[in-house]
Simulated assay, not measured.
Amino acid sequence: MNNPFVTNGYVSAKYFCDREKETADVITMLLNGNNIALISPRRYGKTDLIRHCFSLPEISGHFYTFIVDIYATRSLRDLVNKLGKAILEELKPHGRMVWELFVNAISSLKAGISYDISGTPSWSISLGDITNPTISLDEIFNYLQKADRPCLVAIDEFQQIGKYDEDTIEATLRTYVQYCSNAHFIFAGSQRHLMGSIFTSPSRPFYQSVTIMNLPPIPKDKYREFAVKHFRENHKILCPEVVDILYDRFAGGTFYLQKVMNVLFLKTPDNGICGMEMVESAIDYIINFTADTYAELLYQLPEKQKEVFIAINKEGKARAINSGAFCKRYGLASPSSVKSAVNGLLDKDFITKERDYYEVYDKFFSLWLTKQ
């Protein structure tokens, strides 16, 4: 690999930083029959942690593992489509006898499976083909129960189910999960308040049904050691204070650290030194690629949402945003209009809520906005 700072998915343990305790905890929980709710802000590396755990021999040698991202789903039909496709794609490398068992199990969707000239199947099902998603979901879980290996299913951005029109979806999934003894589940989510309400509210079906794990940032010293080592192994020198300043600036967010370190690595010549003087130009290099997109996103926002978005960005970690004081400070119309705008911004993922404060979700977007 030319650049050891991977910015797009999981490659191998060599390029995966730390998470030794979290890896051990996830493996132990799964091997002992537990379901897990894995919660952290987006871009902290939840999905890469899951892929890392699933790649280890104690898991990969004994389980079928499936990861399905439901971030873009809006209904049970969407969920069935994503889940079915993820299972088929994962089973294909295991050979015909393995994937055929799944294809035969999903009789309501079988007609939507196409085959290439070598007989390899593809998921060519459109949403219109899923005429009865409840039956199709039942078939998928029947497969999981009868599969010839135990299964591990990770559902990423699980909080999305709370936005489905079907108001019984949580109860339905909870029932299937409860009685599917051949499969265990990781429910990963990035919106802490929504995930918390799903798994910790006594009135919700998933209450007390999982082990909740909150994923913290990678410790600064571990990431510093990781970054310096990869520079050194490639005959480059990284000043440790570069990592420290970036870590603090991006609150330990793995995605942002990796993006900036990737650029710093490519801009550091062989046998060269990466020092503090390179940091700002590396960040600008990244932001400039996306500047037009950020400008267009901002332009498309309704005026009131735009005003509140800019105000939250100026505040950094915005607390008490429905107060008169916040409105007065930023010239906003009223607390009620702020509340409405915030709901819209949350729905579009422009901002995120963490405990008692709101902040701009994309830290590069925030930096671009600050420079305008």
Results as ranks from 00 to 15, higher is better:
1 M>T: 12
1 M>S: 13
4 P>V: 01
5 F>T: 06
5 F>R: 06
10 Y>L: 12
14 K>F: 10
15 Y>E: 15
18 D>F: 08
20 E>P: 01
22 E>D: 12
25 D>N: 13
25 D>L: 15
27 I>D: 03
33 G>A: 02
36 I>N: 04
37 A>L: 06
39 I>G: 03
40 S>Q: 01
44 Y>R: 04
46 K>M: 10
49 L>Q: 09
51 R>S: 15
54 F>D: 09
54 F>R: 03
61 G>R: 12
62 H>T: 12
68 V>T: 15
69 D>V: 04
70 I>C: 04
72 A>E: 14
72 A>M: 12
78 D>F: 08
78 D>K: 05
82 K>R: 15
83 L>V: 12
84 G>F: 10
86 A>Y: 11
93 P>S: 06
94 H>R: 10
105 A>P: 03
106 I>F: 08
109 L>M: 12
110 K>M: 12
112 G>P: 09
112 G>Y: 07
115 Y>N: 10
118 S>A: 14
125 I>T: 08
126 S>F: 03
137 L>E: 06
139 E>L: 09
145 Q>E: 15
145 Q>M: 14
145 Q>P: 03
153 V>L: 14
153 V>S: 05
156 D>M: 10
157 E>N: 02
157 E>F: 05
165 D>V: 03
166 E>L: 12
167 D>A: 09
168 T>L: 06
171 A>H: 08
174 R>A: 14
178 Q>P: 11
179 Y>P: 04
181 S>G: 03
181 S>I: 03
182 N>D: 10
188 A>H: 07
191 Q>C: 01
192 R>E: 05
195 M>Q: 11
200 T>Q: 14
201 S>A: 14
204 R>I: 05
207 Y>R: 05
207 Y>V: 09
209 S>F: 04
215 L>V: 05
217 P>I: 01
218 I>T: 14
221 D>K: 14
228 V>H: 02
228 V>I: 13
228 V>S: 02
228 V>T: 06
230 H>C: 05
235 H>E: 15
236 K>W: 09
238 L>Q: 02
239 C>P: 00
242 V>S: 05
244 D>F: 01
245 I>T: 09
248 D>V: 00
250 F>A: 00
250 F>T: 00
252 G>V: 00
254 T>F: 11
255 F>M: 10
255 F>D: 10
263 V>G: 00
266 L>R: 07
271 N>S: 11
273 I>R: 09
274 C>P: 02
277 E>F: 01
281 S>K: 13
281 S>F: 05
284 D>W: 10
290 T>S: 15
292 D>G: 01
292 D>F: 03
296 E>G: 03
296 E>C: 01
298 L>V: 09
298 L>T: 12
301 L>M: 13
302 P>Y: 03
302 P>G: 03
305 Q>T: 04
313 N>Y: 02
313 N>M: 11
314 K>E: 11
317 K>N: 09
319 R>S: 08
320 A>M: 08
321 I>A: 00
322 N>M: 04
322 N>S: 08
325 A>M: 09
326 F>Y: 10
329 R>D: 05
333 A>P: 00
341 A>V: 02
346 L>I: 00
347 D>I: 02
347 D>E: 14
348 K>E: 11
349 D>I: 02
350 F>I: 01
354 E>V: 10
354 E>S: 08
356 D>M: 00
357 Y>H: 15
360 V>R: 01
362 D>T: 00
363 K>V: 00
364 F>M: 11
365 F>A: 05
367 L>N: 10
368 W>E: 07
369 L>C: 09
370 T>K: 14
